[in-house]
Structures are given as structure tokens and as C-alpha cells.
């Protein structure tokens, strides 16, 4: 049983009762799954406290905030993104943790701010192995360092890349260039207060290194001690569709135009990977660049032995591979017995 509504939100609801009711009726027409009880519960448990906080910080924004949050909630509870029946607990957790902690930012532009964070949480929640909770923690840590909401959202983009959205790496590094150096450091996860912020040329050089090497640690790029990097099996990406993955049959991998392209014979996906995660994206127009004459970055034999220069390591999972492709930093391998793509790279882990 949800608690009874009181306070600022209750006042707005009473004031606009007929319209809110009409909106609910209209929403039910489009989203028959919209459950009145679940919606009421969400309003009482999540929206009302938020509006109450906004009433304390920015009373003039109570009405627009209440309307925006009511509208967003109708849409999101109706589609089971929010509410007790949510299919994405990370989004619910984000609304319960992030929005109250950032109520002042929310009050500035409730619809856009709540909408932006919801979309980000959705992407993190739907990307396998992405870390939505860790991203929320980082956003909360970054907020006090940001002079305005736009800067916070920019820094949070960098944090989202590091939370597992590997496909945003290059773009996030570009965003990093626009941030003040100390905030850029924090967004890259380097939060040691004793660390001196880098000069602009130092930061630029570090970002260029991170751009070229997806497996390089930001700390190392920014002048930290170079750790010894060894060849590792760094990721297994993808799974059988029957088990919630993407592939209908064991896939094969190629690397046209410098991008990994995975196919199961029916669909095609772009594969992106770095030290923070690996993601697959359906390719409607796959890269069709020429098969570039690349140096043999890696060698793989039938027993699963991978060699690069003087380094080599054996990975039994890769024995009898059915396809492999490599770029300058990463080897991708598939086998007839697995629905995953295996990634090998040099990283600084034990």
C-alpha cells in the first residue's frame, strides 16, 4: 500500500486533477499494461519525494517538475521501465538514487535532465556487462566538481564509456578534451586529490594515446608507472540467442575497414571492445572497405597458441578456431563450439 500523497506534489495533483486524469486515461489507451496501482505507487514512492525536494530548493519549478515527472512516469511505467514491475531495475535504482541527489539539477529542466539520465541508464542496463550502478556512483562523485548541468552531463558521458559502453570510447575522449583538466581526470577515474591536474598538452597527449590503444589504462597514459602488459584472453562477447544472446549459430569474425564485423550467417554486428567493456551493434550497412594489407598482428595456431612478436600464450578455448581477425591491438577469434567471440589483447593484469 503506497503512502498517502501529501505536500507539494499532492497540491499540484489536486490543482490539475482533471488533466492528469485525462492524461492517464489517454495513456491507458496507448499502453494497456499501465497499471493504476503500480503507477500510484511509483508516484508516491519516487515522484512525490522528488517534487518535495524541488519545492524546498526551487519553489517556482514545482509545477513544471511535477508535470514533467508525471508525464515521463506515465510513459515509463506504462512500458515497464519504471514502477514495481520494471524490467530494468537499474533505471528504477537510478531514479531513486541519482535524481534525489541531483534535485537542484533536476529542477533546472526536469524533463530533459530526467529524460537524459533515464536514457543513459537504459543503455547501461541493456548492454551486457555494463555497470549501471558504478556509473551512478561516478556521476554522484562528479556532480560537486561540475559548475553546471551541461558540464555534469558531459563528464557523465565519459563515465558511461568507462562503465562499459566501449563503442563510445573515441567520442568520449573527444568530450574529455572539452572538460577542465581536473574534471577530465575525475571523469577518467583518477580521483586522487593529491594528483596534480595535467597541463593541456599533457592531457592532449594522454588522450591521443588512449585513442590509439583501447587497452591502455588512463592512469598509465597520464604519466603513471607503466605496468607490464601481457597477453590475456580479455573478453568473451556474445551468446546463443536461446540464452539471451544475439547469435543463432556460432559466429565468424572479420575486420574490414578496421572494424570487427561478426556474423552468424543471418545477421551482422559491429564489435567494439576496450579495457572497460565490449559491445555488439547490429550492422544495417556493414563496413565494406578493402581488405587492407595489414601486417600479421597476431598468429594463431590450431592448438590455440597465439603469438605476437616475441610474446606468445596458449588459450585452450581458441583451439580449432573457425575464424579470426585482428587489428593493431586486438585479436578476435571464434570457434565452432561456442556462440561467443573471444578477444585477446595485451593488458596490465596479473
Amino acid at each position: 500500500m503506497p503512502p498517502p500523497l501529501t505536500g507539494a506534489f499532492a497540491t499540484v495533483l489536486a490543482h490539475r486533477r482533471s488533466r492528469f486524469n485525462a492524461q492517464f486515461a489517454e495513456a491507458r489507451r496507448w499502453r494497456p499494461n499501465l497499471d493504476a496501482e503500480a503507477f500510484t505507487h511509483h508516484l508516491a514512492a519516487v515522484v512525490a519525494p522528488l517534487v518535495e525536494q524541488i519545492a524546498a530548493i526551487a519553489p517556482a519549478q514545482v509545477e513544471p517538475a511535477a508535470e514533467a515527472l508525471y508525464d515521463l512516469s506515465l510513459n515509463l511505467v506504462g512500458q515497464e521501465f519504471l514502477g514495481p514491475r520494471s524490467r530494468y531495475p537499474a533505471i528504477v535504482a537510478g531514479w531513486q538514487r541519482l535524481l534525489p541527489a541531483l534535485a537542484a539539477r533536476l529542477a533546472e529542466d526536469p524533463r530533459r535532465f530526467a529524460g537524459a539520465l533515464t536514457n543513459a541508464l537504459y543503455q547501461l542496463a541493456t548492454t551486457p556487462n555494463a555497470r549501471a550502478a558504478a556509473w551512478s556512483d561516478e556521476v554522484l562523485a562528479l556532480a560537486p566538481l561540475c559548475p553546471d548541468t551541461a558540464t555534469l552531463l558531459a563528464a557523465a558521458q565519459v563515465a558511461a564509456w568507462r562503465a562499459g559502453l566501449a563503442h563510445y570510447r573515441r567520442s568520449a575522449l573527444q568530450v574529455c578534451r572539452q572538460l577542465p583538466p581536473r574534471l577530465a581526470l575525475a571523469a577518467l577515474g583518477l580521483t586522487d586529490p593529491a594528483r596534480q591536474p595535467p597541463t593541456a598538452p599533457q592531457l592532449e597527449a594522454a588522450l591521443a594515446q588512449l585513442h590509439d590503444d583501447p587497452w591502455l589504462a588512463p592512469a598509465e597514459a597520464l604519466g603513471g608507472k607503466a605496468a607490464e602488459r601481457r597477453m590475456h584472453l580479455v573478453a568473451r562477447v556474445g551468446a546463443f540467442r536461446g540464452f539471451g544472446g544475439l547469435f543463432l549459430s556460432p559466429p565468424s569474425v572479420t575486420c574490414p575497414a578496421g572494424q570487427f564485423l561478426v556474423t552468424d550467417g543471418v545477421g551482422q554486428w559491429l564489435l567494439t571492445a576496450d579495457r572497460f567493456g565490449a559491445t555488439l551493434h547490429r550492422a544495417t550497412t556493414p563496413p565494406t572497405g578493402p581488405a587492407a594489407r595489414q601486417p600479421p598482428f597476431y598468429k594463431l595456431d590450431t592448438r590455440g597458441k597465439v603469438t605476437r612478436g616475441k610474446h606468445s600464450a596458449t588459450f585452450p578455448e581458441l583451439a580449432g578456431s573457425q575464424s579470426s581477425a585482428a587489428d593493431a591491438t586486438t585479436l578476435a577469434v571464434t570457434t565452432p563450439l561456442s556462440h561467443a567471440v573471444f578477444l585477446v589483447a595485451f593488458v596490465d593484469r596479473a
Binding site: 529524460g115 533515464t118 558521458q157
Partner: peptide
């Protein structure tokens, strides 16, 4: 049918998802 080749932009973090009309 003709879609341009895919480019990932971190700006999509806030615009691609269940909430439309986030970007101005």
C-alpha cells in the same frame, strides 16, 4: 532503406532510449 554507415557518438547516451525529445 539506405542508412549511412554507423558512427558512435556519445551524445546518443542521452537521446537513444525510452524518453524521446531529450535533446534540444
Amino acid at each position: 532503406p539506405a542508412a549511412p554507415a554507423r558512427a558512435f557518438d556519445v551524445a546518443d547516451l542521452y537521446t537513444a532510449g525510452p524518453v524521446a525529445e531529450v535533446a534540444a
